[in-house]
Design a binder for these strands. Structure first.
Lengths: 198, 198
DNA sequence: GACTATACGGAACGCGCGCCCCGTTTGTCG
DNA sequence: CGACAAACGGGGCGCGCGTTCCGTATAGTC
């Protein structure tokens, strides 16, 4: 349609800088307090006015989506990378990634809220990012099961549910001394029963 | 102080009935939608006016607390009952109660929210009820461990975290076809490793 | 250094919801 | 059946927060 319009001219330097600041502040604020955080506080943290936030993101939900999509895409990339291992290491790759995912989201309210769909209806973009992550996750799971490292009888949706649960559990305790304790239990739950593995 | 005042005369019949209605409606509403549900909707569901709700419960949070305390006390009673078994059945008693607890809270948002402390600061009464439940739970766990039915190396706080997580996971999927699937996985995670038990 | 489009900040608006008030209804007791 | 207190209900107030608007500041350009 209007190629010059959709390309536009590059945004001003301070605009780019402020956009980045807002995203970072929103990431921190959402992670710490979930969706409940007032938008004014995000603006304050970013050192900008409320109006500036709205020029970059049309709505608060859009801002939240942007933060979540960024995190989901980061996770999806790592999952993709985990698929690049030989079949024999499929089990290790699966569990390693699970640890990464749970550790990344440790004490972060936003991802858990988003995955749990707490109150908000996820928009198309978010769904796309989540779908990519889920696809990789399902593939990792299937390969780990084929390699005998993960029990049969569970599917991707079970895995998804368990991950959401583990996220909620980890964030609940917020125990910096022993991070990943829940993650270890979950991983044990996924493994086929073996003679005492510890 | 004023014994006639604190005893008072028995409340009117319709007052008792309406109080019960409000509690039931609040239970359903909170379970279905969490804290987010507007108070007017609870009143509407109960078939009363908003003013009536406030005459029985001074604040929305108090109403929420009343609902939660009722559920916690019910669970605490069942946990207490589960302690009445011989030591040899400690493992079964523990897992049975875990199933009850997870099943009871299946697809109920309120309990999970309350246990997770989502946004609200729990008041003294709630804490008392939760403490009683936790004490019984810890005792059940200890006995099950002593009986060799549950692995060592986890404590009551681990258990608590896992339960919160499982609640979140169960409520996420809301799959009426296969209830308790997460619960089964969690129970497997708690058991000491054994030759394939399924 | 001046000019313009772009971006900024924060005051102002509207809405939703928790909470309160008061005219009306209803249960209870003589 | 009549009278009085207890309880009801829903309209209204105030606040918090998402969103918008516009006067001001500043990056980019000649």
């Amino acid at each position: 349609m209007t190629p010059e319009a959709q390309a536009g001219r590059p945004p001003r330097a301070d605009a780019r800088r402020n956009r980045a600041r807002v995203l970072a502040a929103a990431h921190a604020a959402f992670a710490a307090q979930g969706l409940a955080v007032p938008l004014d506080e995000i603006a304050r943290r970013a050192g900008v006015g409320a109006g500036t936030v709205y020029r970059h993101f049309p709505t608060k939900e859009a801002l939240f989506e942007a933060v979540i999509v960024a995190r989901l895409e980061s996770l999806a990339e790592q999952a993709q990378a985990a698929l690049e291992v030989p079949a024999r290491q499929a089990g290790a790759a699966f569990f390693d990634f699970l640890y990464v995912m749970l550790a990344d989201a440790d004490s972060k309210k936003d991802l858990a809220d988003a995955l749990a769909g707490a109150g908000i209806d996820l928009r198309a973009i978010t769904v796309v990012a989540a779908a990519r992550l889920n696809a990789s996750l399902a593939e990792l799971l299937a390969r780990a099961q084929a390699a005998g490292a993960v029990r049969h009888g569970i599917d991707a949706s079970d895995l998804h549910a368990v991950i959401v649960g583990a996220l909620a559990a980890e964030r609940r305790r917020a125990d910096p001394q022993r991070p990943g304790r829940i993650a270890r239990m979950v991983c044990d739950a996924l493994r086929p029963a073996t003679p005492l593995s510890r």
